[in-house]
Computed example of a mutant assay.
Amino acid sequence: MAGTSMRESIAIQSDDVRIVRALQVAPRASFASMAVALGLTEGTVRRRYRRLHADGVIRVVGVVNPGALGQSRWLVRLRCRPGSAAAIAGALAKRDDVNWVALGAAGSEVTCATQSRDQAQREELLGRRLPRTAAVLDINAFAMLRQFMGGRGHYWAALQGTLTPQEEAVLGGDVPPFTESPAVADAPADLTAEDEKVLDVLTADGRASLVDLAAAADSTPGRVSRRLRVLLLQGVVHIDVEIAPAALGYHARANLWLRVHPAEVKKAGRALAREPEIAFAAAISGPYNIHAVAHCRNLDELFEFTSDRIGGLPGLQSMEVSPVLRHVKQAGTLLSGDRLVGPTSPRAT
């Protein structure tokens, strides 16, 4: 499947996009509930969902918020020798403590996000393993300080308006809305052995039934339902709808590195979070104090977006636009070409 363009093999219909939006609103809703909200038959919703999943357009997965567990998160930029970046990106994507990986700069740069349960794990990767890799010419690591957009059940705003407010109200949904938060919680949550088993199943399938979750945890559906509700409300886990952007016509992705006046960082970050092209935005350490990820339909749209709207952010002093050549991993999900192909491990977060 690698190297095959989605545009050559997948025809996305309007009802497919409506189903994707319905999943964003209520990722664990039953097919019957979605059918009622969308005015389709249950069989149609089930069939279209399974096709979207099989074709690598979407995956519904449980994603653990590392900050809620006291884990630090870092963004890392690696400058690599020509011809070596793809192999380095592939090796990083296999690690549980690396949850997204992208190739850029014509294949000579790797950008990734790491999350470490402890300082020793972080130092093993950033302090020893990567510096000793001969193909890595330069390493820059930035601590994530405040998250403005992305994760914990946020909706990719590009799909807003796909459903009517009435349709979304019928779906309901039990995912708390995204709220700006520190990157690491002051009081980290403690996961029980039962929680860990439930999360392992959700990592593979965010729509796994309560019966399946209970069987994995050697518990009851009622107990698992109550505990999952608590974990969702506490932000320990969110049920994420991973989307292959190219399937919806978004073929230009870019990492944005912004230098903003310190007094304007919060205001600029919150403004970014309101832009429909932005899928992630956070305040970070280092010479650039805001990092964001943008999805646009093409490079011309990316140019218009960054020059007109990002260029007008309060306090913006400079900006680097780094187009993504290829995504290797996103939110723990590996990609092959334009397609989502699955998690890397039982707990790929």
Rank of each mutant, 00 (worst) to 15 (best):
V110K: 06
D190I: 13
P177K: 11
K266F: 00
E194C: 05
C112P: 04
R7M: 15
L92N: 05
V224N: 04
V61R: 11
A68V: 06
R253N: 08
V328K: 03
G235A: 10
S181E: 04
L92R: 05
Q71V: 07
E275A: 12
S318V: 11
R229G: 03
I290Q: 06
V36G: 00
D138S: 15
A26F: 07
D186F: 14
V20M: 13
P182K: 14
L69V: 10
A102L: 00
L171W: 08
E180L: 11
Y250G: 02
A279V: 06
N65E: 11
I58K: 12
K267P: 00
S84Y: 12
C112Y: 13
T111P: 01
H251A: 08
L256D: 08
L228E: 01
V237A: 08
A263K: 06
G39E: 00
F178S: 04
G127M: 02
N255W: 10
R274N: 07
L78H: 10
L69M: 12
L75G: 13
K329H: 08
I58D: 12
L232E: 01
A281Q: 02
K94M: 14
P27E: 08
V236P: 02
C296N: 03
R309L: 13
L75T: 09
E123A: 14
V201R: 13
G83A: 03
A32W: 03
R339M: 01
L316C: 09
M319V: 10
Q121R: 07
T133Q: 15
P323A: 11
A283K: 03
A273S: 13
R309W: 13
L52Y: 00
L38V: 04
K329Y: 02
L316V: 11
L213A: 01
R28A: 10
G67F: 02
T44G: 11
D338M: 03
E242R: 11
V101I: 07
T192G: 14
G249Q: 04
H295E: 14
R95Q: 08
I88P: 02
S225Q: 14
R117P: 09
A134F: 12
D15R: 13
Q330D: 12
G337K: 03
D96T: 13
T164I: 07
